[in-house]
Design a protein around this nucleic acid. Structure first.
Lengths: 113, 113
DNA sequence: TAACTTGCTACCTAGTTTGTAGCACAGAGA
DNA sequence: TCTCTGTGCTACAAACTAGGTAGCAAGTTA
């Protein structure tokens, strides 16, 4: 079910890990959930609350996948990023400032109209 | 239709740009399409071919969105990343090597079983 | 004119996500 | 023991999104 890197994946029969990654991250809420866990571990319900009450159905599905992919694990503090997961989220960290610049530029465009 | 940063977005009514970004990137093919354009401009059909013949319906939808979001533009060479788009893809660049490490670790896990 | 290539659209099917309600289990306290 | 609270998780139906196929209109080239 879960697409491990190295296997065939939607959008790539080469098995290149990056394609598996882009596929996983391109599922709704995955990126956001990892981002939130980057700000600290959370129980199922807390994580839901942080993500505007995403449905438990989907949350459970994603948590299952991300655990199989060794990006998160479930412990006494609820769901936590693994070392791998933290490294990944670290790479995404700088997106925040980029996003702010982006918003500024788009706002500026709107004004020109 | 397209969710500009600064407006309400799925998963965030705060309008934080990063949330708009995570929402956009968390749509199927968006991440992959940007990634592919990072390797060079491409016409509609070439881009489709690079992405295992993603359906034209969806490709068109994504291209429209990404243009509204000023991440790509359509010129004589087909679709091209804007400066903003290139900066974003640049931030994702290092994901490739991370993904390889990730695949190695997962493969190692499988062997332990 | 006729053959190409461009971006794009209509249409229908298949798959994914969402929302609501609630379950089984574990620990704490009376 | 009985309830209360919190945990992760599940069932099910409705709504939405993505996928696959065929083909169009406009532009370019010959």
């Amino acid at each position: 079910m879960t697409k491990l890197p190295g296997t065939r994946v939607r959008g790539s029969n080469t098995g290149r890990p990056i394609m598996a990654l882009l596929d996983v991250l391109g599922q709704r809420w995955t990126l956001r959930l990892l981002w939130e866990l980057g700000h600290g571990s959370a129980t199922f319900r807390v994580l839901r609350a942080r993500c505007e009450d995403v449905s438990p159905t989907l949350l459970n599905k994603r948590m299952k996948e991300l655990r199989e992919l060794a990006l998160i694990e479930l412990g006494d503090n609820g769901f936590t990023l693994t070392d791998l997961g933290m490294a990944l989220v670290g790479k995404l960290g700088s997106l925040d400032s980029w996003a702010n610049d982006w918003a500024d530029q788009l706002a500026h465009r709107q004004q020109l109209k």
